[in-house]
């Protein structure tokens, strides 16, 4: 597989299907794993880092669940390609920096990705559309078992899986759910909801993970605690919280519809109008407007544009995607023009 093959392909997590997909974009499980006796990536030298890459590539070749995957070394990759992978949520921003001895493994469906030599030796990630953490866990658990039959994981019976940072020790698991909560934001209830989430020791992040401001009404919620609970318990806990948030967002949407339907219709249709007619548009504005259009589609106010088309636009209008589509470097001003053109094409000629 070539990176450019991904351009004509919808990532698993963008399909807009799966349980509760009117509110939940995607579910993700990530496992942090390290090998015994090899220094963690930040503390390893180049030889140790290279040897680790070799061991992982070898283990991957023995796993039948990872048959249809491609191994990319990041060192030779140009910055647009790296940002492209970050935009598709296949790797972290941290992984795109200081790329010596770093690699990324992805499968053809973009469901599985493995970052090698990020903060930990392995960061295995599994993405699913909609509210689907248990399904993600079932798949990633089997991949993890297959890898652990050839790799010697760093593990102690009392501390569990050993990670570079003690905040990930134990199960090494982080479950995240990406939610679209425009009604809670518009009705100014979101602060209360986020405060409650923080009290329950869950974290909220924006569209791009770690430390990002939430934009376009997207919120990613994940567990903080990884030790002292089983993987199933951790998922149950996240699921319980997510179910409550889904219910609150659904209620807020009903209240908005009942009390201010015209205002809502106006905002949604103006957003669509701007997207269809703009000649210059930034990605920030695009995200905000697409969020409203997505809400319109979810509420049945916009009938001729499906969720998948909107989801794809969220990603294809990002800077690196535009440059890959055009197959050349574009300045910020050039991108704003190209972005508007792409959106017009997608939304006008359906």
């Amino acid at each position: 597989m070539q990176l450019s093959d991904l351009l004509n392909h919808t990532s698993e997590w963008l399909k807009g299907t799966g349980p509760n997909s009117e509110i939940v974009i995607s579910s993700r499980i990530r496992l942090a794993r390290n090998l015994a006796g090899v220094p963690f990536p930040h503390w390893a030298n180049a030889t140790q880092g290279a040897e680790l890459l070799r061991l992982v590539a070898e283990a991957v070749s023995h796993s039948d669940m990872l048959k249809k995957t491609t191994f990319f070394k990041l060192e030779q990759m140009d910055s647009v390609d790296k940002q492209f992978l970050v935009e598709r949520h296949l790797m972290s921003i941290e992984h795109a920096q200081k790329t010596e001895e770093k690699a990324l493994l992805i499968d053809n469906d973009e469901m599985i990705s493995i970052m090698v030599n990020e903060e930990d030796h392995l960061r295995i990630q599994l993405m699913q559309s909609g509210f689907n953490l248990f399904e993600a866990w079932n798949i990633i658990n089997r991949i993890d078992d297959q890898l652990s039959s050839t790799l010697h994981y760093a593990y102690l019976p009392d501390f569990g899986y050993l990670t570079a940072c003690p905040t990930n020790t134990g199960t090494g698991m982080r479950g995240s759910v990406m939610l679209h909560l425009p009604a809670l934001v518009m009705s100014r209830q979101i602060e209360r909801v986020l405060a409650a989430i923080a009290k329950l020791s869950f974290t909220t992040r924006g569209l791009y993970g770690e430390g990002t401001q939430a934009s376009g009404n997207f919120f990613q919620i994940s567990n903080q605690v990884s030790l002292g609970h089983s993987e199933n318990e951790i998922i149950e806990n996240i699921n319980g919280l997510i179910r409550q948030i889904i219910e609150q967002e659904a209620q807020a949407r009903e209240v908005l519809l009942a009390k201010s339907r015209e205002v809502l219709e106006d905002r949604i249709n103006r957003s669509l109008g701007t997207l269809k007619s703009a000649r210059i548009i930034t990605s920030q504005e695009t995200i905000e407007l697409l969020s409203m259009v997505r809400l319109g589609s979810d509420l049945g106010m916009i009938k001729d544009i499906d969720r998948r088309t909107i989801n794809e636009l969220f990603i294809t209008t990002l800077p690196a995607h535009l440059q890959k589509l055009e197959n050349k470097k574009l300045s910020s001003q050039e991108r704003d023009l190209k972005r508007a053109e792409l959106i017009r094409k997608k939304l006008t000629f359906l």
């Binding site: 652990s148 009392d158 003690p166 030790l227």
Partner: peptide
């Protein structure tokens, strides 16, 4: 020193959950 730190972070210092198929002590 890690045991009390882990307790502060996670509320526990005892792993409950899966273990690798191929366990080799750290």
């Amino acid at each position: 020193y890690l045991t009390p730190l882990l307790r502060k972070i996670h509320g526990s210092s005892q792993h409950i959950g899966k273990s690798p198929l191929n366990i080799k002590p750290a």
